[in-house]
């Protein structure tokens, strides 16, 4: 299988290559499958199709149908199968085609995969990686556009990681597969670099060759700045970076903090950044209430009510299902325009 457009460099040399986020994610999976025979991938259309969003392109050719398994449209059965196989020492990566589909198998996810370790008093480990596509922006409407990471993060027992760029997509995948816990790995369709969907220019990025882990639970400063912290994840990181570039012309120096993991949440990185900038905008493509944006603000408020020089501003999907019609959808998504407005507002 060819995952890269150039021959892989010899070990030790390893200059970065330019890969899409999808290819970087697949490279991480492939390298772990090479290394560890207990790793296998299962889900809908992950074989010959290569994953509807390119999450498994080439894996079937490289590893065969014994390790890359197309499942029936039976999410409860195959999600539970992944949990049972993990209990017996395998390391399944199981794909839920859209995060929106969790409704048909959530019991296996939150009552079984996430709770067995706890219920067993630590005697049983469940090393499953649950991969799933999230996000809107292409008029896929209310049942195929949601992010829902706040829901997974709210329920105890699952780590939740959300790569925004190719290098993290590979490093977080390797870290997730090696983790002894259930890890929900959410990839944004608009950040994968798919040929058939408009995408951010940063969907293509430098990716180191060879195995490396992006530590789960560590945020990254995607752009350092002095005046305001924009804390976010996933595709919104790119929107925030675009906004920061645009506002720099007006003399505003915005810091973009890519949280990368919601569970565990790197609260220290949030406090460190906000401690410097004293102004906070949280951008969240999930719903506004009871979610990530509230958690980030609460993290700051619980630490020190005087940390902020201005009230924080949240840019999230208002509490409404994602509309279909283009103008309506753009009105609810955290677009660069809404982010820029929020930054100006928090700066007074």
């Amino acid at each position: 299988m060819t995952l890269v457009d150039q021959p892989a460099p010899a070990a030790g040399a390893a200059p970065p290559r330019r890969l899409t986020m999808a290819k970087a994610m697949v490279e991480g999976i492939a390298e772990e499958m090479e290394r560890d025979p207990s790793v296998f991938y299962l889900g809908e259309d992950v074989g010959a199709y290569g994953g509807i969003f390119g999450s498994t392109t080439g894996l079937l050719e490289q590893f065969g149908p014994e390790r890359v398994l197309d499942t029936p449209i039976s999410e409860t059965a195959f999600m539970g199968l992944a949990t049972g196989a993990a209990v017996e020492g395998m390391r399944p990566v199981v794909e839920l085609m859209f995060a929106d589909f969790f409704g048909v198998c959530m019991d296996q996810i939150y009552n079984h995969m996430a709770k067995i370790h706890f219920e067993s008093g630590g005697h049983v480990k469940v090393p499953v990686v649950l991969t799933t596509a999230v996000g809107g922006g292409y008029s896929d409407a209310a049942q195929h556009s949601q992010c829902l990471w706040g829901t997974f993060a709210h329920l105890p027992g699952m780590k939740v990681v959300i790569p925004s760029n190719p290098a993290d997509a590979k490093g977080l995948m390797i870290a997730a597969i090696r983790d002894d816990n259930p890890v929900v790995y959410l990839f944004h369709k608009g950040a994968m670099g798919l040929a058939w969907m408009s995408k951010t220019k940063r969907a293509l990025g430098d990716v180191p060759a060879g195995a490396y882990e992006t530590p789960i639970g560590t945020a990254a400063v995607a752009r350092p700045g002095r005046d305001v912290t924009i804390a976010t994840v996933s595709l919104s990181v790119h929107h925030a970076l675009d906004v920061a570039d645009e506002l720099a012309a007006d003399g505003v120096d915005a810091e973009v903090l890519d949280l990368r993991s919601l569970v565990p949440l790197d609260r220290e990185a949030i406090l460190e950044s906000v401690g410097r900038t004293r102004r906070l905008v949280v951008v969240d493509e999930d719903y506004h209430s009871f979610g990530m944006s509230g958690e980030v603000v609460a993290t700051v408020a619980e630490h020190d009510l005087d940390l902020l020089a201005a009230p924080p501003v949240r840019v999230a999907v208002p509490d409404v299902p994602i509309p279909y019609s283009r103008g309506l959808e753009q009105a609810v998504l955290p677009t660069p325009e809404r982010i820029a407005d929020a930054v100006r507002r928090v700066l007074g």
């Binding site: 195959f78 539970g80 017996e88």
Partner: peptide
Amino acid sequence: AEGLPPALGQAFAF
């Protein structure tokens, strides 16, 4: 009924 799917995974691993 939700105890059944994990049994499939155990059988798969065996």
